[in-house]
């Protein structure tokens, strides 16, 4: 038993090492550029596909101007993010910060630190609780995205009975996307919501909820999916109900999603869904870097809170617009 004991610890330890190895393998990386530009510190809460696209947007914009980018990832740890930002400000002496906060409340102390050191603090993609002391913020516009979804459905020019999936009821983004959609449907009768399914962004709840709604309302012929994240679940539910038909089939269920990630782009390319409202994450980077230059030169940026609506891509404009959508880069 003693031996087993050691073995078990060794195994657990090995796992831990593998994990920490993975998570710490993202040290500060520097993009070399010519002199003359500013240095921008970039702190993300973690690095995944979409964050990579956002980082690429920042780097591309910085490159054009000859600015330097120092990037750190906090691995979903608010404490780590705070100390990384402190390091960027005090040791690396960056001229501006572009941040995606892991915790929108706890980041307040980092915002204060930046202000005390006269370093412009910019956030992208996610709003922080402290809206007063940040220098610039650019995020998507969930309400506008929801309205765009409504436009896409109305443009179908059919009587649509819509199943609406809702993300999390405590999530501003999810609520905004719902409210925008509901508002966008006002004043017309062709498109109507016949069922709501709350999902808490849980794929399983999306799958089961969609199945249940299809059971109750067999005449549902459109689904509003508030994120590509939930799209596979919705497609599986349709498949299980025998209702997964390509665009153009008379029994096709009209589907509009938001995000424009690779899953959504592929579904568009495969003619499985009708439209996707792509978040322009590349633009976040471009606009943030412009604002950073202006702020570090002492200028003011007005307005300092910016929301940009997504880009609607659908079966009609897909081949033209796919180059502008980060998730569509690898679409076959």
């Amino acid at each position: 038993m003693k031996l087993k004991f050691k073995a078990s610890f060794a195994a657990l330890g090995a796992m831990a090492v593998i994990l920490t190895g993975c998570s710490t393998a993202t040290p500060a990386s520097t993009t070399d550029t010519s002199d003359g530009g500013i240095t921008i510190g970039v702190s993300f809460e973690h690095l995944n596909e979409i964050r990579s696209a956002e980082l690429a947007g920042i780097k591309d914009a910085a490159k054009k101007n000859g600015d330097k980018v120092v990037f750190v990832s906090a691995d979903d740890d608010a404490q780590k993010q705070a100390s990384q930002i402190q390091d960027l400000i005090q040791t690396q002496k960056v001229d501006a910060l572009i941040v995606i906060a892991f915790n929108k409340d706890q980041i307040t102390s980092s915002i204060a630190l930046a202000k005390a050191n006269n370093v412009p603090f910019l956030t992208i993609d996610r709003a922080t609780t402290d809206q007063e002391n940040i220098s610039f913020q650019i995020t998507g516009d969930p309400v506008a995205d929801g309205k765009l979804v409504a436009e896409q459905m109305i443009a179908a020019d059919k009587d649509l009975k819509v199943l609406q999936l809702i993300g999390g009821l405590t999530d501003q983004n999810a609520v905004g996307r719902r409210d925008g959609f509901v508002a966008g449907l006002k004043g017309q009768t062709a498109v109507s919501i016949v069922a709501d399914v709350p999902t808490d962004w849980d794929p399983t709840k999306a799958l089961d909820g969609t199945s249940n709604a299809l059971e109750k309302n067999p005449d549902i012929n459109a689904i509003y999916v508030p994120s590509d994240y939930l799209l596979p679940s919705v497609l599986s539910a349709l498949d299980a109900a025998g209702k997964l038909k390509p665009v153009g089939d008379p029994d096709h269920v009209f589907i509009v999603t938001i995000d424009g990630d690779p899953v959504g782009c592929q579904a568009l390319a495969d003619k499985t869904i009708d439209a996707d409202i792509a978040t322009l994450v590349g633009d976040f980077g471009t606009q943030a870097v412009e604002a950073a230059r202006a702020l570090s030169a002492g200028e003011t940026v007005d307005p300092h809170i910016v929301e940009i609506a997504g880009l609607a891509i659908n079966q009609g404009n897909f081949s033209d617009e796919k180059a502008n959508v980060w998730g569509c880069a690898d679409v076959k």
Partner: peptide, 17 residues
């Protein structure tokens, strides 16, 4: 069974389950 039903593996799969 779960993965077979969902058709995709996502970072929140099983979270809080």
């Amino acid at each position: 069974v779960q993965v077979g039903r969902l058709g995709a593996v996502q970072p929140t799969l099983g979270s809080g389950f």
